[in-house]
Nucleic acid binder design. Structure first.
Lengths: 252, 252
DNA sequence: GAATTGCAGTTGTATATACAAGTATATACA
DNA sequence: TGTATATACTTGTATATACAACTGCAATTC
């Protein structure tokens, strides 16, 4: 049979998964475009050498997942392209700057392992003073400072954090890539910056800044605790998202 | 068998659907609380008089739907109550204040129909000067001003807006109730308040405030354009939400 | 006491078989 | 021509059977 006959008795991937992958691959490669009529279950049985129930399960699940639609008595068809990301989109500051037509650069002001300060340890549920990664960066657009980012990272989640080259990839981008964040909390406030930050952001006196606190979770564990400071006159924090019937929504 | 033996050959509801309903009912009635160990497939086979594959399909689908979780070799369990709204939750400022233990009151500073200012008309896609509802309120917690809210409402979406009693229900709550918002955009910035707002919010000089702009859509039409001003030292804007595999997410 | 093994019970997957039910087309018939 | 019927093919569901894989615990062994 086509789906590799020499697998162990319980294949690493179940047969119905193989069938799903087979179908998804053809969809992705556009060999089967939207509304294309997928071969019937019996055809796939012959072609792939598995039983009809296995094909049925694969197609049924793909139908539940919105990749196919099925009409009893007629056939199975490739579903139209599903809307891209349903809700908000993660954008790194670098992407954001680029999309606004800017030129992004960043400077690493600090990158080290250190004992967790009391507040951070409490948030992360770690013993006070246990090692934690601490990074501070300034992001610029054409050399003009746009964001001051201070970040504490739980080493359990990103053990190789310190070895990264943050001139090539921002910490946000790296963490997004390696850690499947499952939850996030944001708090925004306005304040007058402390002198150190004010200097880094090249801000005049008496001008307010925006502070965005972000905590992320990977499963039950707190992965990062961040503090982003923006000069108010140069940057706004925006988001736009769709609202569906089931999922309620938004902010204050 | 328990699931009604006298059905026609192809029951209106498939047998596996009946099994799903049977399980869901017990979960809903709390007879099977969260983490309760559901009877094994074989037990349900005896109890319900259907084949194991049918029970298996029912439990498998419920597991996909997040109502159960299954551990191979161990058993099937009732999933913990799923967090209420999957993403952000709409909270009116009133609810927010109450949930923080405060006492909410509000004062209507302005409530009238007026010609749309140029900026608002452009945003809403209306001719300049066409009639629009304009409301300004101050929300207080124990008499202390917390939010200054200025709101423009598209009359096509909420024609009876002016007739509402905004001492009983806030404009946000009213609009949430009558208009099925499908999309929302938020922009946050920090700024020094203008004198009129500063006075209303009882803010000292040289203290920054948070400004949240919110635009909502009902289908293709812009429903409202709002500007909320918060005294920075008294209020933070927060949100927390979950992130799933398919749906990408969030903010900057 | 510690480590290993075996076993019972559970879920996970795969197959063959059967029939029900929906749809489209061809055919027969008036 | 128009209508009814047959039919072939499709998906949908249900069952019995079999074995794989995982877990927890008891029994055994060292």
């Amino acid at each position: 049979m086509i789906l590799d006959p020499h697998e162990p008795k319980r294949p690493r991937r179940a047969l119905y998964q193989e069938v799903k992958a087979y179908v998804l691959d053809l969809i992705k490669r556009q060999a089967w475009p939207p509304h294309y009529r997928v071969p019937s279950e019996n055809t796939l049985v012959e072609r792939l050498g598995v039983s009809r129930m296995t094909v049925n399960r694969a197609l049924r699940e793909l139908s539940h997942e919105g990749r196919l639609y099925r009409v009893q008595g007629v056939g199975t068809f490739v579903a139209a392209q599903k809307p891209q990301a349903a809700f908000l989109t993660v954008r790194s500051i670098a992407d954001e700057i680029k999309s606004r037509g800017g030129i992004h650069s960043s400077e690493v002001l600090l990158l080290q392992e250190e004992p967790a300060p009391e507040e951070i340890a409490a948030i992360m549920g770690l013993p006070e003073g246990s090692p934690i990664f601490h990074a501070v960066l300034v992001h610029r657009d054409r050399g003009v400072p746009i964001q001051y980012a201070e970040r504490f990272v739980n080493p359990a989640v990103a053990p190789e954090f310190l070895q990264q080259d943050f001139d090539r990839i921002t910490p946000s981008e790296y963490l997004l890539k390696i850690a499947p964040v499952t939850e996030a909390e944001h708090v925004v406030e306005a304040m007058m910056p402390d002198p150190a930050v004010r200097k880094r952001l090249h801000m005049p006196a008496h001008e307010p800044c925006l502070v965005l606190y972000r905590t992320t979770w990977v499963g039950p564990a707190v992965a990062t605790r961040n503090r982003f400071v923006y000069p108010a006159t140069r940057f706004r924090i925006g988001s736009r998202f769709r609202i569906t019937a089931d999922d309620a929504h938004l902010i204050i």
